[in-house]
Nucleic acid binder design. Structure first.
Length: 109
DNA sequence: GGCATGACTCCCA
DNA sequence: CTGGGAGCCATGC
């Protein structure tokens, strides 16, 4: 469990219903712009044990792209339930992208 | 340590 | 808009 991971988890948990964030966006806010893939990995391994709204995390194109086909359908359903319009596994990022207020204090810095 | 892999992203045709 | 190629980085063998 690295600091990067903690921030990623915190950021994801801060995403309100009906909004989404991209992997790169989260990685950047967590302190590593190149960590998009790591964010994806974190979701894959942590989503089961933690209460993470992983369905609100999508790629830079606004598409739902997951290794598991079932997971893709699940994510689509969850987003639709929250009022996010999903067309062919794609959404309008310009309408649903969430810009979090980063105001937590990194005490160890 | 090297090599392959991936729920990514950016850039260009 | 779609497709191909290169870059990045943690993880696992």
């Amino acid at each position: 469990m690295t600091h990067f991971t903690e921030r990623v988890v915190q950021i994801i948990q801060s995403i309100p219903a009906g909004k989404v964030m991209t992997y790169g966006q989260i990685a950047t806010l967590a302190g590593n712009r190149r960590g998009a893939r790591q964010v994806a990995r974190i979701l894959h391994s942590m989503s089961k044990k933690h209460q993470l709204p992983w369905h609100r995390v999508i790629n830079a194109k606004g598409e739902i792209v997951i290794s598991d086909t079932e997971g893709t359908l699940t994510q689509k359903e969850l987003l639709l339930q929250e009022g996010v319009l999903v067309l062919g596994n794609k959404i309008r990022l310009e309408d649903y992208r969430y810009y979090p207020t980063v105001n937590w204090v990194p005490e160890d810095m």
